[in-house]
Amino acid sequence: MTPVNDIPLTPYAQLPAAYRDRHIAHSTVDAFGRAHWLLTAEAHPWDGPPYEAVVVTVGDGHPYETHLSAVRPHGVRFDALADGGFIVAATRSHRDEEPPQAQVFDALGRPSWTFRLGDAIEHLLADEDGTLWVGYFDEGIFGDDLSAPGLRQWSGTGDPLWEFKRGPGVEDIADCYALNVGAHSVWVCPYQRFPLIEVRDGRTARIWDNPVRGASGFAVCGDRVVFYDPSGDDRHQLVDCRLGESAVRPVTRTRLVRPDGGALRGRRRVVCRGPRIYVQVKPFTAWTLLDITADS
Rank of each mutant, 00 (worst) to 15 (best):
residue 28 T to W: 00
residue 98 E to G: 03
residue 81 L to G: 02
residue 16 P to D: 12
residue 239 V to H: 03
residue 158 G to T: 11
residue 48 G to N: 08
residue 59 G to R: 00
residue 237 Q to E: 15
residue 289 L to D: 03
residue 123 H to F: 06
residue 57 T to I: 09
residue 32 F to C: 07
residue 6 D to C: 11
residue 186 V to K: 03
residue 179 L to V: 10
residue 55 V to E: 00
residue 249 R to D: 01
residue 129 D to Q: 10
residue 55 V to I: 15
residue 80 A to N: 00
residue 65 E to R: 07
residue 29 V to D: 04
residue 214 G to T: 12
residue 69 S to F: 12
residue 209 D to N: 15
residue 35 A to M: 01
residue 148 A to D: 03
residue 223 D to F: 04
residue 29 V to W: 05
residue 100 P to N: 10
residue 258 R to N: 15
residue 157 T to G: 13
residue 158 G to A: 14
residue 285 T to I: 13
residue 62 H to A: 15
residue 258 R to I: 08
residue 225 V to P: 00
residue 257 V to H: 04
residue 55 V to N: 00
residue 43 A to M: 05
residue 207 I to G: 01
residue 205 A to L: 08
residue 253 R to V: 05
residue 69 S to R: 15
residue 272 C to P: 01
residue 166 R to N: 05
residue 237 Q to A: 15
residue 269 R to E: 12
residue 259 P to W: 09
residue 234 D to F: 02
residue 113 W to F: 15
residue 28 T to I: 01
residue 248 V to R: 00
residue 157 T to N: 14
residue 190 P to R: 02
residue 83 D to N: 13
residue 199 V to F: 07
residue 222 G to L: 10
residue 218 F to Q: 00
residue 219 A to L: 06
residue 66 T to V: 15
residue 98 E to Q: 14
residue 135 G to W: 01
residue 194 F to I: 05
residue 147 S to E: 02
residue 134 V to L: 12
residue 237 Q to L: 14
residue 12 Y to Q: 07
residue 143 G to T: 11
residue 143 G to Q: 12
residue 22 R to T: 05
residue 249 R to W: 03
residue 144 D to Y: 09
residue 266 G to E: 13
residue 147 S to T: 11
residue 117 L to N: 11
residue 127 D to W: 01
residue 42 E to P: 02
residue 44 H to F: 08
residue 180 N to P: 03
residue 258 R to M: 15
residue 41 A to V: 12
residue 63 P to R: 05
residue 170 V to E: 00
residue 98 E to D: 12
residue 277 I to L: 04
residue 276 R to A: 02
residue 108 L to I: 03
residue 34 R to K: 08
residue 101 Q to Y: 07
residue 218 F to N: 05
residue 289 L to G: 08
residue 255 R to V: 08
residue 263 A to C: 00
residue 271 V to H: 05
residue 281 V to I: 14
residue 30 D to Q: 04
residue 68 L to T: 03
residue 281 V to C: 14
residue 196 L to T: 00
residue 171 E to S: 10
residue 294 A to G: 07
residue 180 N to S: 09
residue 66 T to Q: 06
residue 231 S to K: 04
residue 52 E to N: 15
residue 217 G to H: 06
residue 35 A to V: 08
residue 57 T to L: 02
residue 227 F to H: 08
residue 268 R to C: 11
residue 99 P to I: 04
residue 292 I to G: 04
residue 224 R to L: 01
residue 40 T to F: 07
residue 290 L to W: 03
residue 206 R to Q: 12
residue 71 V to C: 05
residue 119 D to Y: 06
residue 124 L to Y: 02
residue 193 R to Q: 13
residue 97 E to T: 06
residue 258 R to Y: 14
residue 180 N to C: 07
residue 268 R to S: 15
residue 119 D to I: 09
residue 295 D to Q: 13
residue 204 T to L: 13
residue 99 P to G: 07
residue 63 P to F: 05
residue 263 A to G: 03
residue 42 E to R: 13
residue 269 R to W: 09
residue 178 A to S: 14
residue 196 L to M: 05
residue 127 D to K: 00
residue 174 A to R: 09
residue 66 T to R: 01
residue 111 P to R: 05
residue 258 R to G: 13
residue 278 Y to V: 01
residue 29 V to S: 07
residue 269 R to G: 06
residue 275 P to W: 06
residue 78 F to A: 07
residue 238 L to Q: 07
residue 12 Y to C: 08
residue 219 A to K: 01
residue 2 T to N: 03
residue 69 S to M: 13
residue 270 V to G: 06
residue 135 G to K: 00
residue 227 F to Y: 15
residue 100 P to C: 10
residue 25 A to L: 11
